[in-house]
């Protein structure tokens, strides 16, 4: 028969042994790390280019960072997690100024685990570079490009900042953040969130299925903005001076409008849903907001 209070004692003993187990595991992890060593030393590629080369990066897993610099050349520093993967760079033409450069990560040892197939890229490119990045898993960051940028990932998140060229950004499950875009933007994700911060673009299309969308900033005169969230919420935060025509509609969601809009006489309500058709200020931009069950919120900046 158990003595009174033995469950507490047993719990204490278990916690104590769990603590020791954790300490042991921590030391073992450190030991393993020390035994295997840190990441492989970075492999550096440097190519001379013109002001607007085409750069393609195909990576399996890891972080990809692409930044613009003032030089007419491309420098890539690639760090692989293990010898199970290698990074190749193919300039075209092979000699002289490269017009196209393709970086790709290859699995050398197919039996290696997923983590061993990680490669991180930090790539400096001329601002006018046309960029194409495929990174299955891992964060992608692109900064300061004026060329066309096409980015795709399955599970990673994407951040694009200060891009003035056309952006085509797609992530299946990751979040997408686009800061201060000036060119046309096409962004989509299925389960991730979309954020457009301080854009000056005249055309933005953003869609997500279960994520939410945040648009924070003004709308350019003559601009066309189409944002669609299926079950997530859609938040628009714009300055009081924002001038737009709005067409907002939702099948089952709510419309939370904190912005003064002169409603149109035309009925914009989808049958069985909610809708808003109206104009704010001079109606210089066109705003098309849709949701199925998410809430559409409009606010002005304070």
């Amino acid at each position: 028969m158990r003595a009174p209070g033995s469950p507490a004692k047993t719990l204490q003993t278990r916690l104590s042994s769990q603590l020791w187990l954790r300490i042991l595991v921590s030391f073992l992890s450190i030991g393993c790390f020390a035994a295997t060593g840190p990441d492989q030393p970075p492999k550096v590629f440097e190519f001379q280019t013109g002001p607007g080369p085409s750069v393609t990066i195909s990576n399996l897993r890891g972080q990809v960072t692409v930044r613009s610099w003032s030089k007419q050349g491309v420098r890539a520093s690639c760090t692989v997690a293990s010898p199970a993967v290698e990074v190749d760079a193919e300039p075209m033409p092979a000699n002289g100024r490269a017009e196209r450069i393709q970086f790709s990560t290859h699995v050398v040892d197919p039996s290696a685990g997923a983590d061993a197939a990680t490669a991180d890229y930090v790539v400096d490119v001329p601002a006018g570079t046309n960029l194409e990045v495929r990174n299955r898993q891992g964060h992608i960051q692109v900064e300061g490009l004026s060329g066309e940028t096409w980015v795709e990932t399955v599970g990673g998140s994407i951040t694009v900042a200060d891009a003035s060229g056309h952006l085509d950004i797609h992530s299946l499950g990751g979040d997408v953040e686009i800061d201060r875009p000036a060119g046309h933007v096409e962004a989509s994700t299925i389960t991730g969130n979309l954020e457009f911060l301080d854009p000056t673009s005249t055309k933005i299309r953003g869609t997500t299925t279960s994520g939410h969308i945040l648009y924070q900033g003004d709308f350019s005169p003559g601009g066309n903005y189409m944002l669609s969230a299926y079950s997530g919420d859609l938040d628009i935060v714009c300055p009081a001076s924002a001038s737009f025509e709005i067409h907002a509609q939702s099948v089952k969601g709510r419309l939370d409008n904190g912005v003064d809009v002169i409603r149109s006489q035309h009925d914009a309500t989808p049958r069985g849903g909610i809708g808003l058709l109206g104009t704010r200020n001079q109606g210089k931009a066109r705003l098309d907001l849709r949701s199925y069950s998410g809430t559409i919120r409009l606010r002005t900046m304070r």
């Binding site: 897993r61 997923a114 299955r136 898993q137 399955v154 599970g155 299946l172 499950g173 299925i190 389960t191 299925t209 279960s210 299926y230 079950s231 199925y292 069950s293």
Partner: peptide
């Protein structure tokens, strides 16, 4: 890869839910 599989599965589940709704 398990990570990719989970992402695809989550996306497909999300889309299937949309289709059903």
């Amino acid at each position: 890869d398990p990570g990719l599989k989970a992402t695809y599965r989550k996306s497909l589940d999300s889309l299937d839910a949309s289709i059903k709704e």
